[in-house]
């Protein structure tokens, strides 16, 4: 079953094409990691999938409840941790999941803190719990673990993998970390170019690490060269 189906998706921001004819589909129960240089349009891709950014061309089909963990935590500053997670809950059944989820992301002792009292990593975990509360069918994650220590990161990667396996969500996972991308994603998609498109797709196996790094650094080098060239002209 398809969760996300993008066909030749084009997105224009401020008169500039950011994504060009990008095709990507994600099955329910599948995690697709997205990597690419900073500013290449990873967040834009997620926003387009969520319907927050209008598309200039192509076809976008998304089925089911969408949850989005933004690159910034985006918590409501006037609500404490519990209330921020409960913000996404629509009924008592979903509200009953708030406390157990906070426990699973390691925030059982922080439930009454306000966002201004949280560390960056704590706030990210609140945002993750908020996204999971409604058991989404489409889960969009924009570098959700970027502010976490290695141990916590591991714990949450496993938590996420477990939840996805249970809930059969279609997940797009944006990250800067190649190992994380390979560990969590069944496939890793590499975005590059200007405007960006999918330049490669690599199966999510640890053995593909070198290949992925090669792809990214080649792309980085080409970008640098193109820039030099442009300056020279």
């Amino acid at each position: 079953m398809k969760g996300i189906d993008l066909h030749e998706l084009t997105v224009t921001l401020g008169g500039r094409e950011v994504l060009h004819q990008l095709t990507l589909s994600v099955e329910r129960g599948e995690v697709v990691s997205v990597v690419g240089a900073s500013g290449c349009g990873k967040s834009t891709l997620l926003r387009a999938i969520a319907g927050l950014t209008p598309i200039a061309g192509g076809v976008r089909a998304v089925q089911g409840k969408v949850a989005f963990v933004f690159q910034e935590p985006r918590l409501l500053p006037w609500r404490d941790v519990t209330a921020n997670v409960a913000f996404a809950a629509r009924d008592d059944e979903e509200r009953a999941r708030v406390a157990p989820l906070l426990e699973r992301v390691g925030l059982a002792a922080a439930t009454h803190l306000l966002p201004k009292q949280l560390s960056g990593g704590m706030a990210q975990r609140v945002a993750l719990a908020r996204a999971l509360v409604r058991q989404p069918e489409v889960l969009l994650l924009d570098e959700p673990f970027s502010a976490l220590d290695a141990l916590r990161r591991r714990v949450l990667q496993d938590l996420l993998a477990g939840i996805v396996a249970d809930s059969k969500a279609a997940v797009v996972f944006v990250t800067h970390d190649v190992d994380e991308a390979l560990r969590l994603g069944q496939r890793v998609v590499v975005l590059a170019g200007s405007p960006s498109r999918v330049i490669a797709e690599v199966p999510g196996r640890p053995s593909n690490r070198e290949r992925l790094l090669d792809l990214l650094s080649t792309e980085e080098r080409e970008r640098a060269e193109a820039q030099l060239h442009r300056r020279a002209v």
Partner: peptide
């Protein structure tokens, strides 16, 4: 606007 986006995502 970012908070409004969050709210829209969650219905």
């Amino acid at each position: 606007r970012k908070l409004v986006e969050v709210a829209r995502i969650y219905g």
